[in-house]
């Protein structure tokens, strides 16, 4: 009986403490050891216009008109920076995503993260070198080289490695190929593999993108899921430290020139705004 009384007393006191805490803080209480959700939305645009596959006609800095028929890229190795400066690293095995413009469901990356306040994000545009050389059993989901159609393939079978960003389209300024198409194909990859002893490294187009949420704070709570809206500007693939002409470079794949494309697209992402969804 006595024991019961003491137990009730503890419950009462702790309940009181929680109530007080809620009253004193402006923010809803969260438990840093509990998890919540944070969403990264990749919204691809062309300059100030939305990216419309096949339909939209755009103009690059070289003055060429172009349309995009396909855009896909890997987002991997995601890290979230908290307002206190600490970092949450998404476990690597579940940190590979493929954004495909023609599949809207791939535009939103859903992460399970500890509840807390987040101020920024960083990710690799592409696939890290370690994963690029792992056993096939460690390449599941979007990394599975045996689960890709040819049209959407993101893996070079003849030169083992992933394509980090794949963009295709047309431009009237490109000379017609033997089938009469004025197509461009940009398949950019290269993880800096080594050859020989000591190894001579090949091109490394792995780009780490770091974005700050500015004045926004992504508050991950039991009942609050921030959705961070990130803009990917296709125009910056062509316009950047190198102004790239489609007529002069209709096909860029595994070649020294691809480094210029990667250096350009390293700057194509920008944090834009945040929505907060009530619930998880």
């Amino acid at each position: 009986m006595k024991l019961h009384f003491r137990f009730l007393h503890i419950i009462f006191l702790s309940g009181f403490t929680i109530l007080t805490a809620c009253k004193n803080e402006v923010e809803p209480e969260f438990n840093p050891s509990a998890r919540g959700r944070l969403l990264l939305e990749f919204d691809n645009v062309v300059g100030t216009r939305d990216l419309e596959l096949n339909r939209g006609v755009y103009r690059n800095a070289a003055g060429e008109e172009f349309s995009v028929s396909q855009l896909q890229y890997y987002v991997s190795n995601i890290r979230l920076r908290k307002t206190d400066g600490s970092e949450y690293v998404v476990p690597q095995d579940s940190s590979y995503f493929l954004v495909q413009e023609h599949k809207p469901e791939t535009h939103i990356i859903r992460l399970s993260v500890p509840q807390g306040d987040y101020a920024g994000v960083s990710f690799i545009l592409g696939v890290d070198s370690l994963r690029s050389t792992m056993d096939i059993s460690r390449r599941q989901g979007v990394l599975n080289p045996t689960d890709m159609s040819r049209e959407e393939g993101m893996y070079w079978t003849w030169n083992s490695g992933y394509i980090f960003l794949r963009m295709e389209g047309t431009s009237p300024q490109i000379a017609p190929d033997p089938s009469g198409n004025r197509r461009f194909r940009y398949h950019i990859g290269g993880f800096g593999g080594g050859f020989g002893t000591p190894p001579v490294r090949t091109i490394n187009n792995i780009k780490t993108i770091t974005l700050s949420f500015g004045r926004d704070i992504a508050k991950v709570r039991n009942n609050s899921t921030p959705q961070m809206h990130i803009i990917g500007d296709v125009l910056k693939v062509f316009n950047g430290s190198t102004t790239i002409s489609l007529a002069q470079n209709p096909t860029v794949m595994f070649s020294p020139f691809s480094v210029n494309v990667a250096n350009n697209y390293a700057n194509m992402f920008e944090y834009h705004h945040m929505h907060t969804i009530v619930g998880r």
Binding site: T133, D135, I136, P145, T146, Y155, T157, W158, N159, S160, G193
Partner: peptide
């Protein structure tokens, strides 16, 4: 160009 026998047949 290929450094893993498992990936060779692809």
């Amino acid at each position: 160009g290929i450094h893993d026998l498992d990936l060779q047949p692809l």
